[in-house]
């Protein structure tokens, strides 16, 4: 009765736009990755070089270091957010007056522009008038300079990410906790299980799909962090907080070495996809088991 042609017609604008801005660039980057293309070089056009760009890339210490920083950052940020978010969500499951108010306020960082989050944090840590700087320096006597100390800069970016994204984890965990049925928990309590055992054997296994989904999305987003860190530290001091997205944005992109840049982009994409795919497999396996 209904022709499929009309259905495709409704779908086609979406597909065309996604193809132009999503799929085509992917094919293009794969293609250019095999060429030498530098508009300021003697030879202006594309020169086929086979895998030379990738050969250079696997020995590129800057690139590999920024990959390693990204993984380190992702690990610390996401694991802290999970623990904090879970604890906070646990406290929100109870009904108490003002709960809605707290929840609304808590969702605020999720809506703020990442670049503004960076600005926000920069204002907190500027030597001279930032409150965090003041407290650490005056009350605890710690010399706090994110422009000079690599470890402090790293910790500050992690803290900023925690500030920005813990609310997200809290809210998803809350959705998970409220969907856990009460009966098994209560009967386990009657049988004399303690709080820890209830978590270990009932709550967490039941929430596993949501926990993994949250981890998945958080890792994806942490791996591609750019704006906040750019605003807070600019990737410095040195390259201590130059995470992979920032590396492409600040170092690779401004150079006109398009072939090498494409190879870098593609390899970043490759690592992200493999990482996410492994997580994805873990999620679907755990879903099948539960």
């Amino acid at each position: 009765m209904k022709s499929n042609r009309l259905g495709w017609g409704f779908l086609s604008p979406t597909l065309i736009i996604l193809a132009i801005t999503g799929f085509l660039p992917f094919l293009y980057v794969v293609y250019i990755g095999f060429f030498d293309w530098n508009i300021f070089a003697a030879q202006k056009g594309l020169v086929y070089t086979g895998a030379n760009n990738y050969r250079r890339l696997v020995f590129d210490a800057d690139f590999l270091r920024s990959l390693w920083y990204t993984i380190k950052f992702t690990f610390w940020a996401v694991s802290s957010e999970l623990i904090l978010g879970f604890a906070l969500a646990q406290l929100l499951t109870k009904d108490f007056p003002g709960k809605t108010f707290f929840r609304i306020i808590h969702a605020l960082p999720l809506m703020i522009a990442p670049i503004a989050v960076g600005a926000l944090w920069r204002l907190l840590v500027i030597p001279g008038f930032g409150p965090i700087w003041y407290v650490l320096e005056e009350w605890f006597g710690i010399e706090y300079r994110i422009g000079a100390s690599t470890s402090q800069a790293f910790i500050t970016t992690v803290l900023m990410d925690i500030w920005h994204w813990t609310p997200f984890v809290t809210l998803t965990m809350l959705a998970g906790l409220t969907s856990v049925p009460k009966d098994p928990v209560e009967s386990a309590m009657v049988d004399g299980a303690n709080q820890w055992q209830v978590y270990r054997y009932i709550t967490i296994p039941m929430m596993m799909p949501i926990i993994l989904t949250t981890v998945f999305i958080r890792i994806m987003d942490a791996l591609r962090i750019v704006d906040e860190v750019y605003m807070l530290t600019g990737g410095g001091p040195g390259d201590a907080t130059r995470y992979i997205g920032l590396h492409i944005f600040r170092v690779v992109f401004p150079k006109t070495d398009y072939g090498y840049g494409s190879a870098t982009s593609l390899l970043t994409l490759y690592f992200t996809i493999v990482f996410c795919w492994l997580l994805f497999v873990a999620i679907s396996t755990s879903q099948k088991n539960s």
Binding site: L18, T21, G22, F23, P25, F26, Y28, V29, I32, M220, L223, R224, V226, I244, G245, L246, I248, F249, V252, F253, Y258, G261, S262, S265, L266, T268, L269, T272, I273, C276
Partner: peptide, 15 residues
């Protein structure tokens, strides 16, 4: 489409 890191698409989109 949403999962890919945007930074990886900077260069091809720019070109």
């Amino acid at each position: 489409n949403r999962m890919a890191p945007p930074a990886a698409f900077l260069l091809p989109l720019f070109l």
